[in-house]
C-alpha cells in the first residue's frame, strides 16, 4: 500500500476513529472487560478442583495407551484459522453460499469437530 490516495484514506479513517466519543469508548472498554471475565469464569475450570495434578497426568497417559491400542488413526493436522470448521459453520460464508455450497454440511462438520 503505497500511493497517496491510499495513505490519505487511511489517515482520514484513523482521524475518524480518533474522534470516537467518550460514551462509545467507555462501552468498548466495558465490552472488553466483559469478554475477559469469560476467561476467568470458574465454570470453565470446574474440573480442576477435583483432579489432583499427578492423577491428571496418569489418566492422560492411560488414555493415550488405551486410545492408541484401539487403532485410532493419526491425529489430525493443526487447522489454520481458514480451515477451522467451527468458523466455517458459523460463518455461512457468503462466497460459499454464492457458490451454492451446502450449509448443512458445515453444520454437520462443526458438530463432528465438537464431538
Amino acid at each position: 500500500m503505497s500511493d497517496d490516495f491510499e495513505k490519505r484514506t487511511q489517515e482520514v479513517l484513523e482521524e475518524s476513529t480518533a474522534r470516537l466519543d467518550g460514551r462509545t469508548r467507555s462501552r468498548l472498554t466495558q465490552a472488553r472487560h466483559a469478554a475477559l471475565a469469560e476467561l476467568a469464569r470458574p465454570e470453565r475450570h470446574w474440573w480442576r478442583s477435583y483432579v489432583p495434578a499427578g492423577a491428571a497426568a496418569a489418566v492422560a497417559v492411560l488414555a493415550v495407551v488405551i486410545w492408541s491400542g484401539q487403532g485410532v488413526g493419526p491425529a489430525p493436522t493443526a487447522l489454520s484459522p481458514v480451515d477451522d470448521l467451527e468458523l466455517l459453520a458459523d460463518a455461512e460464508s457468503q462466497e460459499f453460499v454464492d457458490d451454492g455450497e451446502d450449509l448443512e454440511f458445515y453444520e454437520w462438520a462443526a458438530g463432528e469437530t465438537e464431538s
Binding site: T17, T29, A35, L39, A53
Partner: peptide, 30 residues
Amino acid sequence: NGERSRDQDLMTTSRALDQFLSSVEKRAFK
C-alpha cells in the same frame, strides 16, 4: 503448585488478550 502454574498461565493469557483487544477495539467498531 499445579493450580498456581495454571493461574499464572491464565493471567498471562488474560493480559495478552487485554492488550490485543484494546489495540483493535476502536478500529473494529469503526
